[in-house]
Write a protein that binds this DNA or RNA. Structure first.
Ligand SMILES: [Mn+2]
Ligand SMILES: [Mn+2]
Ligand SMILES: [Zn+2]
Ligand SMILES: [Zn+2]
Lengths: 141, 141
DNA sequence: AATAAAATTTATAATCATTATAATATTATT
DNA sequence: AATAATATTATAATGATTATAAATTTTATT
């Protein structure tokens, strides 16, 4: 148990982030909940453990994680920002029926684009939308 | 000149959208300004020609265009929604320095993903971020 | 250990894009 | 011309995010 917290602390320290209780808990949450949670989801879960937690802290901390590459921001839909602790390059599929966001591995890095030869590419995002198998099955008449 | 408006009208009629003056002008705007404008940009340009124009009309109309595939929505950044009249599948590169959003052609359709075999994919989006050649040149010391 | 400084968190208010609502204007139908 | 349907407008409400300043906690200094 303390082992877990020590590991999370170490991760933060390596990024020159002081491992406060709030930061550790937020990092722990996004590591254990890989369903691409929103700020609200994170806040509403952690407030049970940390009754004094402020939503501003969640925003600040996620911004900090984003800038140090401990988390990535997903903006698939313009009305909800989601966070992802898996920072390696991978695709996202959002089901328009149930809202679930699925990860998928795709050969994003080899998506060669001649016309961007002289562009410095720092970040690649692939978002798909449609209907997931569960919802397809459910809506089958 | 009227030829142009007639063409735009026809496009709307084909989609079963009544070609009101506002709708024609908004369609014309996004067709002639392919720099992925925001609602605000569109509104602030058209208000000069249509002094009574309401921002709600711009929102409603773009939602209508989106649902009839006359426009696509870009949500590269979580704080700005942009619109694109090029509805064919193409990639977008946003320069983090100057904010310009560049189009690029990529083989998005052939981005095969085995794990999505049983998913019904309706929409594919590819967003890159980084620095554009102009800004790279400018910042060269 | 006491004090001061720095960093972090919290509570609260402000901002701003978007959505909702209802009134007005326009267009189509009888 | 009267009526119904549709579109536009003005305005208010919503809600996520950001900004600000006070309070708390941590760290450094004496
Ligand atoms: Mn993911
Ligand atoms: Mn485009
Ligand atoms: Zn689903
Ligand atoms: Zn640039």
């Amino acid at each position: 148990m303390n082992q877990k917290i020590d590991n999370l602390s170490k991760i933060l320290i390596e990024k020159n982030i002081k491992p406060s209780y709030q930061r550790i808990k937020i990092l722990q949450y996004i590591n254990e909940n890989i369903n691409h949670p929103t700020v609200d989801t994170i806040f509403n879960s952690l407030i049970k453990e940390i009754p004094t937690l402020s939503k501003a802290t969640v925003y600040n901390t996620l911004e900090l994680f984003k800038s140090t590459n401990l988390a990535k921001v997903l903006t698939i839909e313009d009305n909800e920002t989601r966070y992802d602790s898996k920072v390696h390059s991978h695709g996202h599929f959002k089901c328009e029926s149930c809202g679930t966001i699925y990860d998928f591995e795709a050969d994003i890095d080899n998506l060669a684009v001649d016309s961007l030869k002289y562009f410095k590419i720092k970040d690649k995002n692939v978002y798909f939308k449609g209907i997931c198998p569960k919802c397809l099955e459910k809506n089958k008449n």
